[in-house]
Amino acid sequence: MKPSPFTYHDPHSLDEALALLNQYGEEARIIAGGQSLVAMMNLRLAQPDHLIDINNIPVLNGIECQDRLLQIGALTSHQDILQSELVRQSCPILTNAAAHIGHYAIRQRGTIGGSLSHADPAAEWPMIAILLDGEMEIAQLSGEKRTLGARDFIQSIYTTDLAPEEILTKISFPCLEENEGWAFKPFARRRGDYFIVAVAACLTLDQSGRIKRLRLCLGGMEATAIRLDEIEQGSIAHLPDENWIREVAKAACNEGNPVDDHNADVEYRRELVEILVTDALQDAFKGTQRG
């Protein structure tokens, strides 16, 4: 289990990195935290000829909040997100999701941009990005930038819209509203494992206590996390009572087109969705009452 040979590149600016990507195209891979990539390289499942290390591009690292938009540099580690007071205050579901990623040492080096670019369907960030309609900022060689919503960015298992010569530079999340309830409920066999099924929800109520907005997302039921648009729309103006939760949970478990594997058959995934949606909505509702 040793990686095959590659040429190592250590650009110190984004332009430099983009130029290298342009030069080597599909033969190159970007390495950020490398917590998935290096494992794959050790197994020789990935054998890039050129490895472009973006760890020395400081502009890619950092957390800011402007105009109720939380902006996280792609190179920011899971641990930095987990420990950020700014994140905790503006978008606490990110703090919670970060705590579920891998293990303590993995969180120190793994990055949010790396995780999103890798697009593992059982990973936390792609799912949370889809839940919150995060915006991906992507740099191109031309010096241009393009931005893309998470649902367009993440296309399938390990597949994103990122072209070989592009770099994901920043992810923006709209801050949660005041009194917005939220919950992230992953189910895994062991602590730190990729989830088998996960549910994430955000809920806001209007002044009369009816639902103003629901965001509900399932992981582990498709090749990417899925938003339950119809349920979200149908919930508007509904009273967030136990009945509603039960109905949503029942409806949600019919969503998606999951597969059988040795951790979960289709029916079990649906059973888990029902349990986790119930838990998530109860927690999210509680969150709306914190006021």
Binding site: G34, V38, D53, Y104, I106, Q108, R109
Partner: peptide, 13 residues
């Protein structure tokens, strides 16, 4: 100061 897997880092990094 941060615990990291040395099998997932290339020495040159």
């Amino acid at each position: 100061g941060k615990p990291q897997r040395s099998c997932l880092v290339f020495a040159i990094q």
